[in-house]
Design a protein around this nucleic acid. Sequence first.
DNA 1: AATATGTGCAACCGCTGTCAA
DNA 2: ATTGACAGCGGTTGCACATAT
Length: 240
Amino acid sequence: MVRFPCCEKMGMKKGPWTPEEDQILISYIQRYGHGNWRALPKQAGLPRCGKSCRLRWINYLRPDIKRGNFTNKEEETIFQLHQVLGNRWSAIAARLPGRTDNEVKNYWHGHLKKKLKQRSTAIEQGFGSTDRQEIKEARILLQHDQFRDRSSSLNLKPLISSQDSPESTCLATIEQPDELALSREQQGAVLEAAGVKLPFSALETLKINGSYNVDANRDFWFKLFMENSNEVHENLGNFG
DNA sequence: AATATGTGCAACCGCTGTCAA
DNA sequence: ATTGACAGCGGTTGCACATAT
């Protein structure tokens, strides 16, 4: 497909926006909206390409943008959504009012990636050296797209998390949005039918509390993801 | 004080998905 | 079914500023 070059080859300006350009863009969008980004700069009299205008508006000039540091709650939301959605920054940002995908992405690369590493190191240090290969494999499995997509579409999120304090426990939780909530019995039934072989104690805990403390059962949880991945793929289809 | 290194973030680039013709 | 235009997305870059040496 033939494409016209976007910016500089057409004589468009690049680089940081000036306050004057910002004002022109804001005034134009407030007055006429932004129906057609490609036509907008010409109509507004801006020496920029439509793409650049769109980015500037969405990431910086939009009136509903929240500025300032991310809260702990927002951080935790990003961690959890990233477990499920991966690098789908726009999808993550959509659940954080006032935050843009660019902001979330930058924050992830600047702060959260480091924190995540610290967390996994902390978790790893809680295991014996013989478990490390299993941990590595389990991580790969947890990141496996097909498994993630399948489980998220069913609203079953394999989520292993820990808090910052070293003495905190790991908790595997089955979560789902309210509108599609499964009862605890249903959650257990889904896991059983999916071929996930929960030990009796875990299943009972799950049915009673909706969550299961894996602190004393780490081996089980990592083996669970290793051994059941194929069966889970096949059997979860029956629920989809 | 000068230089090196790290960090934060705005902006750009190239690709993909969607939709109308 | 195909093509082309466009919007949107995620990865990456580059610059300004802060901090360390």
